[in-house]
Simulated scan of single mutants.
Amino acid sequence: MEGIRLVRVVKIDGDEGLLESIDGLYRRVWNQSIKERLEKHMKYDGFRGYIMKSDDDEIIGFSYGYISRSGQYYHDLLANELGPIKYEKWLEDCFEFVELAVHPNHRNQGYGTILIHELLKEVTNKTTVLTTQVNNSSARNLYQRLGWLVVKEPFVPSKNDSPYVIMGKDL
């Protein structure tokens, strides 16, 4: 049975060690910290998050999101970008899919798909939205394969950012 890994999906909670492990994975994937932002987002309405752990307790990946509300930084950025008609469709009753990260050694094995399904399976909002870099073809392919649509492209969150794409899905 060598090569087969048993994995389990666990809810993200405020455990300091867990948050440090998530931050370590995020640093490995994106070369920056997420800990402070994650701690802030954990206080938002409807926060949901999951990690995937291997049989030896290694964090393979994580995903999280929350209910998108007026007054939240990213919600307001998206609202300004989308305009009133798309706002009504995509943001009025929306779960914001904030992060998905999978360890580089564990990609293309279905773990991202599992984390996405787990995150969204009990969400009661009408829609969900996310953003990813325009040139992140592996992420875009994954989301499109799972039924996400391009809502707007390009989207440049701030003048120093690279272009992103806003994607949405009816739930």
Rank of each mutant, 00 (worst) to 15 (best):
R28S: 13
Y164F: 07
I4W: 14
E96A: 04
Y50S: 07
E122C: 14
D170H: 11
N135D: 13
R27Y: 13
F62M: 14
V10K: 14
I59C: 07
Q32N: 15
T113H: 12
H106K: 09
E88T: 06
D45E: 15
L120I: 00
E2D: 12
K43Y: 00
I12A: 05
G17W: 15
P154I: 03
Q133H: 07
H117A: 06
Y64V: 01
N135T: 02
V151L: 01
I114M: 06
E92Y: 04
N125M: 05
M52Y: 10
W90K: 12
E153G: 01
D15N: 14
R37D: 11
R37S: 03
L82H: 08
N141Q: 10
P154E: 13
L82I: 01
K53E: 15
V165H: 06
V98G: 03
I85C: 10
I51E: 12
D55V: 02
I59M: 05
E153K: 09
Q133V: 00
L19G: 08
T131M: 03
E118Y: 02
T127D: 09
V134T: 14
K43C: 00
V10Q: 13
Q133P: 00
Q32F: 11
Y111I: 02
L25N: 07
V9Y: 06
L78E: 15
L115F: 02
A79K: 13
E2C: 10
D13M: 06
F97D: 04
F62K: 09
R5A: 01
G49C: 13
G61M: 12
T127W: 15
M52R: 01
K11G: 05
C94W: 03
N136A: 02
Y73D: 08
K152Y: 10
V129M: 10
R140Q: 12
F47G: 00
N125D: 12
P157W: 05
R145M: 12
Q133A: 10
V151Q: 06
F97S: 02
K86N: 11
K35C: 09
E36N: 11
H75F: 15
L6Y: 06
L19F: 08
Y87D: 08
L77Q: 08
L119N: 01
K35L: 15
E153Y: 07
F47T: 01
T124S: 07
V10H: 13
E118T: 03
Y44C: 10
V123H: 01
P104R: 04
L119W: 06
Q72K: 11
S158C: 08
T128K: 02
K159P: 15
G46R: 11
V98D: 13
E20F: 05
D170I: 05
V29R: 01
H41C: 00
W30E: 15
L120C: 03
N160C: 06
T127C: 02
K169E: 00
I116H: 12
S63R: 03
E81V: 02
N141C: 03
K35S: 09
L91Y: 09
I22N: 06
I12Y: 09
Y66K: 14
G24F: 02
A101G: 05
L6T: 08
R28P: 03
W148V: 00
E58T: 01
F95I: 01
F155N: 11
Q72N: 11
N80L: 10
S70V: 11
K169P: 03
N141M: 13
I59P: 06
E39G: 00
W30A: 07
A139Q: 13
